[in-house]
Design a protein around this nucleic acid. Structure first.
Length: 258
DNA sequence: CCCTATGTTCCCAA
DNA sequence: CTTGGGAACATAGG
């Protein structure tokens, strides 16, 4: 269930194995993904990530767009059998990329490379506290929902939203419009630190997440609140609580997040 | 049986 | 128009 650091991990690993390589064959094993045009014979010119979406630029002005949603996984393999729930196979001379997706929520499309359909800045380079403070003045959403709104800020999901707000000492229920510029600057700082660290750890493996080479991530060893209900806060010793916000499990330390 | 799940979209009500 | 709640998508696991 990948968020920005997990998708960034896949993007970098995909660059290692397929940049410049020629697609030999594409097989869509699940009709729900829809028909995609035959991509065989085209080389991969670039791999990019927008928020949680992957974008493969191909010869001939085409883009392959992939969103893994809840349970999508990508795996690089060399001709072994196909695991259960394999939905897509992209074959290359040195191996193949397969999409595994038990719940079948992942989406795939091929588009002309003209204008990217994505909005929301790249968090690693474009997180601009002043800008976000400005646009947040009009939103009464809880700050956690605001951070997870992919149209405004692309890439933050439930785990990292909990971690960011904890390290910024802000309650997930505060209205976005009530945050000060100084608080937005705090959010910006911890967001950058957390995402960079999580990327260097190749993501967070709570249950399902594996990278392109089937390895677990390491960031679960650095989580301060997520999945720690009932344990004590490393910072103040308070008890970590889990509550619901918009239907999502939300972890916080009530005594140091205000 | 119950509940939960790292995502997104849609419908409906206030 | 905004927001919030719930369901849907489809499946596995505790």
């Amino acid at each position: 269930m990948p968020e920005l650091p997990e998708v960034e991990t896949l993007c970098r690993q995909l660059c290692q194995v397929i940049l410049g390589a020629e697609i030999l064959e594409t097989q869509v094993l699940d009709p729900k993904l829809g028909e995609i045009r035959e991509l065989g014979g085209r080389k991969v010119l670039a791999m990019n990530r927008h928020g949680k979406a992957l974008e493969m630029e191909l010869e001939g002005g085409l883009m392959l767009l992939l969103h893994l949603r809840m349970t999508g996984r990508l795996l690089w393999q060399n001709g072994d059998g196909l695991p259960p729930h394999t939905r897509l196979v992209l074959s290359f001379p040195k191996g193949r990329i397969i999409l595994i997706d038990p719940r079948r929520f992942a989406t795939l499309s091929v588009q002309k490379k003209d204008r990217s359909p994505f909005c929301g800045g790249n968090l690693l380079e474009d997180f601009d506290p002043s800008h976000l403070w400005g646009i947040s003045q009009k939103s009464r959403l809880p700050i956690k929902s605001f951070l997870m709104d992919q149209h405004r800020i692309a890439g933050i999901g439930n785990i990292y939203a909990c971690e960011i707000l904890h390290q910024a000492h802000i309650s997930p229920w505060r209205r976005a419009c009530d945050l000060s510029l100084a608080e937005w600057e705090r959010i910006g700082g911890v967001t950058r630190t957390i995402l960079r660290k999580a990327i260097s750890c190749r993501g967070t493996t709570i249950s399902d997440w594996r990278d392109l080479f089937d390895k677990e991530g390491e960031y679960q060893n650095y989580l301060l609140v997520y999945n720690r209900e009932g344990e004590r806060c490393f910072e103040c010793g308070g008890e970590i609580q889990r509550r619901k916000l918009n239907g999502r499990g939300t972890y916080l330390c009530p005594s140091c997040q205000k």
